[in-house]
Amino acid sequence: MSSTRIPFTREDKEKIASAATWGLVVSVTSLITGALALLVELSSAKASEVFGQMLQTGFTVVINIWLLQASLALRKVASDTNANDQGNLLIGFRKLRAYFMAQVIVILIAVALGVLAFVAMKAL
C-alpha cells in the first residue's frame, strides 16, 4: 500500500474516529477488569484458580494491546494532520486481524479442552 491520503468523506472519518475511540474503551475496560480479577484471585488461597486467572489475564492483556494499537492507528487515519493514511490503515487492519484471530484460536482451544474434559469424565 502506498503512503497516501485516502479520500474518506467527513462522515466516514468521524465514524472511524468514533470506532477507534470505542476500541480504546473496550481495550482499557478489559485491561482494568482483567487486572482487578487477577487481584481478587491472588487474594484467594487456591493456587490452581490463581494460575487459571493469570493465564486469562495474560491473554486479555495481549489481545487488548493489539486492539489498543489498532485503535491508535485508526485514530491517525481519521485525523487530518497525518498524511500516511494507507500505511496506518494497514497497521490497524493487521492488529485487528491479530485481535480477532487470537479470540477464535482461544475459543477453539477452550472447546477442545472442554470436550476432552467431558470425555475424561465419562471414561472415569
Binding site: F8, T9, E11, D12, K15, I16, S18, A19, W22, G23, V25, V26, L74
Partner: peptide, 11 residues
C-alpha cells in the same frame, strides 16, 4: 467506510 460504521457499532 461502511465497514468501519458496522465495526463502530460492534465496538
Amino acid at each position: 467506510g461502511a465497514g468501519f460504521r458496522s465495526l463502530r457499532i460492534y465496538l
